[in-house]
Amino acid sequence: MTAFELIQQELTQILIEKGAIAPVVSHDTVLLDGPLDIDSLDLATLVVMLEEKTGKTPFAQGFVLFHTAGELAVLFGAERPGE
């Protein structure tokens, strides 16, 4: 599974658990203040899930700016074997 597919899967899970509508997530989908019914706590939860499932900690050295699902996927996808 690519980092982007993992983001799609985890976002859908978070939205279902909230009882929110889970729209299709594309690379350009803005994560906060966009079409998704998620807030900063949901996004923080998503990052924890991604860190645990990929073993990567792209924010360990400090905050890296990202807006879209695609940008977040790049942070978690870099140097993943098999992609």
Partner: peptide, 12 residues
């Protein structure tokens, strides 16, 4: 608690 780039910290 672990550091979170979004909320400062988050619990696990």
């Amino acid at each position: 608690a672990k550091a979170s780039p979004i909320t400062g910290a988050i619990l696990v």
